[in-house]
Structures are given as structure tokens and as C-alpha cells.
Design a binder for these strands. Sequence first.
DNA 1: ACAGAAAGGTTTGCACCGCAAACCGATCTG
DNA 2: CAGATCGGTTTGCGGTGCAAACCTTTCTGT
Lengths: 103, 103
Amino acid sequence: MTDDAPFPTNGLNDTVHQRHRLGILTIASESDRVEVSYLREALELTAGNLSRHLAVLADADLVAIERGYHGNRAKTWIRITPAGEAALDAEVAALRELLDRHG
Amino acid sequence: MTDDAPFPTNGLNDTVHQRHRLGILTIASESDRVEVSYLREALELTAGNLSRHLAVLADADLVAIERGYHGNRAKTWIRITPAGEAALDAEVAALRELLDRHG
DNA sequence: ACAGAAAGGTTTGCACCGCAAACCGATCTG
DNA sequence: CAGATCGGTTTGCGGTGCAAACCTTTCTGT
């Protein structure tokens, strides 16, 4: 009861912790850049919803958005930023700490 | 790219995933019953904020609220319900799956 | 060549949520 | 018995998450 170390959930950043954004960052951290359309399918999101989450992440400078073309089709990719990597690492560390409490 | 298994974050339940509620449920799962005032300190929450989260969890039948006295002082405890345990286990399982992707 | 349909996103509108300030009823304390 | 304290709830509001509606460009059929 004299445990005054901060509880793991206090280390979580709300911007990163949101479940879809956690998914976006996780996938983004696994490869150099990711097609938005791939994210949409992998995370089973509506395009609108995904768009807003990407805007939130871009505003927070956790991902960078790159527009371009695939053939003649407009296409968008995202790339995780160094700040995004750091924030994700912090989240993962806090979650590991939390999970340690669950045996 | 033909990975059509649902992404781990899709298995997360928003009621449970919220960071403070995740903390509440985690602590509640670790002992039989917990004083609300202990939660307040451990999670560094304002009383008002905590009260609302507990109401959400109680509404969802994930915790039960027990009112009583400690000496003459009114005091409240919470106890995780079987549904709460199950929901927390599901969250933890999904998080483990997610963390597995992070090496 | 022109009318849809489709691809690939963005914006809008609204309900719900998270938060702390304000509040409430009891119980101690001088 | 006036004020401080404990233990918690309610209120008010800005912010968030969501899908429907919308926009632009590119295919496709005729």
C-alpha cells in the first residue's frame, strides 16, 4: 500500500494509446512507409475515420504524410517520424510494465 | 500483405482500453476488493474523474460498487466482476499479441 | 465523347467521453 | 457550533471518435 511509484497507466500518452492510432503506429514502425489504403484494410477502418486519426498523428508530428502517385492514381503514404518511434516505444514500455503485473 | 487476420488493436474493447479504466481493472484484479481512495492515489486521479470512470465500469457490469463504513467514515470499495475479469483478460491477450510484434 | 462507377481521400455533424470545478452530506476539531 | 476535512458525486464544457456525405480524379461501357 506504500507503493508510490507511478502506476504504469499513468505513463501512457493518450494520443498514442488510442487503439486505432496504436495500430497505425505499430504498422508504420514495421516498414519504411505504408500505403494509407493498406492501413484502411488492415485496421478495418472507414476511410473517414482513418483520415482523422492520421491528421491527429500528423499534427502531433508522430507521422509524416507523403502524397504521390501510383501509376496515375493519387495515393498517400505515411511514414513514422523519430518522435513517433519514441512515443511508440514509450507506450510499449508502459504496456509491458502493465502486463508484467498480470503474471 | 495478404494478412487478413484481424489486427490486434481490433480486439480491444474501448471501455476497457481507456488508460485509467485499464488501471482500475488491473488493480481490482489483484485483490479481492479495493478502496476507492486507494485507487485515487495510485492512479493519481481527481476524485471526480475517478467517480465517473467507476460509474462507466459499473454500468458495463465490469465492477461492482460496495458502500459501507470504515469506523464511522463512509467509504466505498469496488470489486471486479466475472465479466470484468473476462474483459480484462481479453484486453491483456490482445495487448500481448500487439507487443509480440514489437520484438 | 460522355455518363456513370470506382478509387482514394477529406470534411462535416453529432453523440459520447474525459476532465476538473463546483458541489453535497457527513464527521471531526477548536 | 463554526469552520475544516473527508469521501465522493454532479455539472458543464471542450475535445474525440465515428460514419455519412461529399469531393476530385480516373476508369469503363456504349
